[in-house]
Each structure stands twice: as structure tokens, then as C-alpha cells.
Computed example of a mutant assay.
Amino acid sequence: MSVIRQDAVHPQVAPAEEVVASAEVVPGLYDGRGHLNMPAALRGSHEVLVHQNLMADQDGLTRIQDDDDLLDMRQKKMLVALPVNEGLRIDERLPVNRRFCRPWVAQFLLAVGRAHYAQFHAPLQINSAVRTVSFQLRLMRTNGNAAQADGEAASPHLTGQAIDLGKKGMSQAEIAWMRLYLTPLLDDGRIDVEEEFQQACFHLSVYKRYAPMSVAPPRVIATHRTVTPALAATLE
């Protein structure tokens, strides 16, 4: 069995075992009675946005100015194609030339997609990835919630370190799982998270320090095998 991964414009076949590789079990999704544990939302703030820009500066990341700059970075392998397989899909509305990210972000996506698929047998959807300053300026004119195109509160998407994972269609169990999965990485300073509700996504900035991880973060599974009908419905 094989799955498809996107490489630039043309997808390539990736081994299925890459998607379903086992991961260490971490308890916490359900309590001893089979009740879903719902962690608090990972809400963003101005301070979190500023921190994402500070981290980009520390990592030596430039802001991508326009489509020519984007193409140049792709050719230099400073940006790589978003991975696509059984555990990851891309929102079809995302333009092909913006389906790219920093290499360590792709590593993160493969890890979280693999772990989520092993638990729920459903893919995560990537709604947004790299953007250019010229695109962000246009977005600011039509979207009052859009981040700035420069300064300390500029959109982290301009560096290629940020991606948005869609929440639309996720069960409550999946949302709880994502919060549990992301929190240790957040606490360790490998990522920043802004859980958005109007746009219904997990906005994530993944930092260079994520790359040294040789083992994917553990997947979260139920700690009790007895699941009530109501809980079972959340996993469908």
C-alpha cells in the first residue's frame, strides 16, 4: 500500500509505513471512567505573536517579499513542499505556489499527521502555510483580523515557519488530542500555538529547535478501554 506526498508541484509516492509508524503511548485523553478530558484552549495573544517574530529573528529567518523571492527560496531548498499522505491533506483552496514551508516544519507535520492518523484514522488538513509580504498587504485590506506585514507583530507566515491546521470537522476528542499533543512541544519552546476560533484552526509556528527531535512526540490515546456511546460518537 502506498500514499501520496506532494513534492513541489508533482506528488510522489511515500511508503505507507511512514504514516502508521508506532508512537509511544501517553495517557490523558480519557480518565479512568472513559470520560473525555478536555484541556483548555491554547489561545493566542499579542505577546505570543511578538514572540513568534522574535524567534524568527533568532533563527535568522527573512520575510518573503514576493513571488520571485518565494521561487528563489524554493530553488535553494530553503522552503520545501508541504508533505501529503494518509495523515495530511491540503485545503484545495490553498494556491499551489504557497504549499511550502521550512524543512523543520515539514518534519513536524509528518510527525503530528502520523500520530493523529494512528489514533483517529483521519487526516489533518493544512489550511495555510507560507505567505509573501505582497500577499499579506492585500489580505490586510480584505480581512480585519489579518496580522501586519511588518514589525514586531508581523504574520509569522511570512517566514515560512507557520502553518494553520484546520479544526472544522474535528470531533471533540480530536481537539482534545491536539491540545494534549501540542502542549509538551509548547512548554519545551519548540513551537508556539494560537488556537483560533473565527478561522477555526490551530495556528502554529515551528522553530528550528524542533528539528533535532529524532523521535516523534508521543501520541495520546485513551487510558480506559470502556467508552460510552456518547464518547464513541466523538471518535467517528
Results as ranks from 00 to 15, higher is better:
4 I>N: 07
6 Q>T: 08
7 D>Y: 03
24 E>C: 00
28 G>N: 07
29 L>Y: 05
30 Y>D: 10
33 R>E: 14
39 P>Y: 11
40 A>F: 04
44 G>V: 13
45 S>C: 08
47 E>F: 04
48 V>R: 12
48 V>H: 06
49 L>Y: 08
52 Q>F: 07
53 N>T: 00
55 M>P: 01
59 D>S: 10
61 L>A: 02
61 L>I: 05
62 T>F: 06
62 T>K: 13
62 T>M: 07
70 L>R: 02
70 L>S: 02
80 V>Y: 14
83 P>T: 02
87 G>Q: 09
88 L>N: 07
89 R>C: 10
90 I>D: 05
91 D>G: 05
94 L>I: 13
94 L>Q: 14
96 V>C: 04
96 V>H: 00
97 N>S: 09
97 N>F: 03
103 P>I: 09
103 P>H: 03
104 W>Q: 06
106 A>H: 05
108 F>W: 05
109 L>C: 03
112 V>C: 12
117 Y>R: 14
120 F>S: 13
140 M>H: 11
141 R>G: 06
141 R>P: 02
141 R>N: 02
143 N>G: 06
147 A>C: 02
150 D>L: 15
150 D>M: 14
154 A>R: 05
159 T>R: 08
159 T>Y: 06
160 G>P: 10
161 Q>W: 04
162 A>G: 01
165 L>C: 07
171 S>T: 13
174 E>V: 07
178 M>W: 13
185 L>E: 04
189 G>T: 01
189 G>I: 10
200 A>T: 13
201 C>F: 00
201 C>P: 03
202 F>T: 03
203 H>A: 08
205 S>D: 03
210 Y>W: 06
211 A>P: 02
211 A>M: 10
212 P>V: 09
212 P>W: 05
213 M>Y: 02
214 S>D: 04
224 H>T: 15
226 T>E: 12
230 A>L: 15
